[in-house]
């Protein structure tokens, strides 16, 4: 599904290397978690995959189902099936949440040569999915993320993911700023989307989200590359002993 090979990335403005030869292989139907200390490059990886400006790829490749992501515009990546749930969802005053969702769904369909969704179909789908995430009608009418609480913003990300039905979902610290109930809702939303043809990359600081979204593989990231990979037990080890031991052990 997602094949990242020897990825090197630096910040455009500062000429500072952030990712230093990162490798990652995600199979369809699996959930991979990436954990790591602050500054290890986790969010940079998410942004680079989604196509945000401000980064320079100096080496390596990132392929989604065989297609080179790094050569595509952000909207092409989205149409190809990539989705990033933002750590800090952006507020867009003046654009209604519903309008935004429908425009996005139909833009992707158009890019893939599929027929647009009728407003009836769309409304039905969005209402059903919003209900599952406990997003009320009022929130759908409001401008995108404007005046939303932290939990509402994250649920809104999951709603977009559910509507867009991407193949490769990246969740960038989706648990940050959430209380336990909100985190459960978000995890339920994610789990409902798990299927054989879809993969997830869950970036998180803490193990607690992984109690609700069970990963198949856990990676520890430090200083711009993966330093250790293992099963779910790796996350528990981090929770117990912190990153210092693992990172130190690898670097020693």
């Amino acid at each position: 599904m997602l094949e990242i090979t020897n990825l090197h990335v630096k910040l455009e403005e500062e000429d500072k290397a952030i990712l230093k030869g990162l490798d990652l292989h995600v199979e369809p139907g699996t959930v991979h978690a990436i954990m790591g200390p602050n500054g290890s490059g986790k969010s940079t990886l998410a942004y680079v995959l989604a196509g945000r400006e401000g980064y320079t790829v100096t080496e390596g490749s990132a392929r989604l189902e065989g297609a080179e992501l790094l050569e595509m515009e952000p909207e092409e990546r989205a149409a190809a099936g990539l989705f990033l749930a933002f750590q800090y969802p952006v507020e867009i005053p003046g654009v209604g949440n519903m309008t935004f969702l429908r425009t996005a769904v139909n833009a992707q369909r158009k890019a893939r040569g599929e027929p647009e969704m009728s407003s009836g179909e769309f409304l039905k789908a969005v209402r059903e999915k919003a209900r599952e995430l406990k997003i009320d009608a009022e929130m759908l009418k409001r401008p995108v993320n404007v005046g939303f609480s932290g939990g509402e913003k994250k649920r809104n990300e999951i709603l977009q993911m559910a509507m867009l039905e991407p193949r490769m979902c990246i969740l960038d610290e989706t648990d940050s700023g959430l209380d336990v109930d909100a985190m459960k809702l978000v995890a339920q939303g994610v789990n409902a989307l798990r299927d054989a043809g879809r993969a997830f990359l869950v970036i998180t600081h803490y193990q607690r989200l992984l109690d609700h979204i069970h990963p198949d593989v856990v990676h520890i990231m430090a200083d711009g590359r993966m330093v250790k990979s293992g099963g779910p037990e790796l996350a528990l080890e981090v929770e117990k002993n912190g990153y210092a031991d693992i990172v130190g052990e690898v670097q020693a």
Binding site: R52, A78, V95, A107, L164
Partner: peptide
């Protein structure tokens, strides 16, 4: 970027 990451082409996102 947020709009484009959801699949809106640059021009459409700008117009919105």
């Amino acid at each position: 970027f947020y709009l484009r990451s959801r699949g809106l082409p640059e021009k459409e996102a700008t117009n919105l």
